[in-house]
Design a protein around this nucleic acid. Sequence first.
DNA 1: TAGATTGTTAATCGATTAACAATC
DNA 2: TAGATTGTTAATCGATTAACAATC
Lengths: 219, 219
Amino acid sequence: MEKETIKYISQPTIKRLPLYLNILRNLPKDQNFVSSSYIAAELKLEPIQVRKDVSSLGITGQARMGFNALQLIETIESVLGWSNTRDAFVVGVGSLGTAILGYKGFEDHGLKIIAGFDNDVKKVTTKVHGREIFHVNQLAELARRMNIQIGILTVPNEVAEITANLMVKAGIKAIWNFTQTKLFMPHDVIVERVDLASSFAVLSSKLVEQKTKGAKSEA
Amino acid sequence: MEKETIKYISQPTIKRLPLYLNILRNLPKDQNFVSSSYIAAELKLEPIQVRKDVSSLGITGQARMGFNALQLIETIESVLGWSNTRDAFVVGVGSLGTAILGYKGFEDHGLKIIAGFDNDVKKVTTKVHGREIFHVNQLAELARRMNIQIGILTVPNEVAEITANLMVKAGIKAIWNFTQTKLFMPHDVIVERVDLASSFAVLSSKLVEQKTKGAKSEA
DNA sequence: TAGATTGTTAATCGATTAACAATC
DNA sequence: TAGATTGTTAATCGATTAACAATC
């Protein structure tokens, strides 16, 4: 397979890559080529957008054929760093942390959750979904020993900042932040926040909009 | 309080409104006015962006003073439909559904989770975080009786589409979709997807980027 | 060949940011 | 008054979409 020259990949493109990957992985085994219009139809996107995204990966297709599916899969996995699994710790074993400890789907994203941490001694030394729970004051030692780069932050908002600082001190390089708190971290620490409130805001504002429209058309 | 003329509010703005709301609600009680630069600093945004967003809500401020905090709070809540609580069902009581059934923070977003549904008879009639779990074949009846508009979809991917269809038949108008599946629903049904894979893609691609940069600077 | 599909260049669209007069 | 802050208009930036020649 030829070497691709990867250009700058925009964040909107990065966010679509897992969707493409999902489709490509579920392709029938004997289907070696896939067209931009096929992918687009599956995702309700425009073919041109798929082609633009693929082009930014440095992949070229073949007229009348489309793109090499295997090459696409491998390139996306490599761009996302999903080719090899990365180990991660979950910090905060409340209901959300528990759910994440038990979620199987992350393996498809190259993410392997190793253990959980909590400051509640009642939770420590128990197992949640087969993973051991340690006290947060063991975080630094274990993270360094196991060379953990990714921390999943699922503590209550009030302790989000202080816990994130602990994680950074423990050598963690990337924080997946499930709290409501905007973290102010050193610039070399990667922080990505899952913002449920923003997502729900979109949903509920549309519901408001639809209702006012309905009220108008009734009048 | 004067009536605001609300203009078109863009989706990026809608997504920032919960962040603003969070800050405004945590303001000291005696602080009646708040400036765009204060909000911006708290969120690492630009003041001009905050002013633009506020302006699209139809709110005007006062030079040297800023904006009326209470008016801002009330307007944001009204735009998002968070002034009154809305009831919702969780469909799919796996680990994620369980976490959502137990999450307290939704009340701040005008969301009240009433009950859970599953197709596993072992889960039915149990209680999860104090909420009753029913069999999915009771969904239609209960949703109609209680006039439920919002459904939270936390089933496995394989049954996402079929379950969403059940929800629509039950009269549910908005689906908060936590699955990986892109849903094709009637146009009057609102669907908003929480895409963990996209979020993680951003994080892990940055990790890849940083590593290649590091490798280069070492060379 | 005919026609489907890619891939490049340009146009459009929309959001963010800048500039600065108005205002309290 | 002086100066901080709003709010409007214009500039910039970046992503999406359109157009269409090239290609297999």
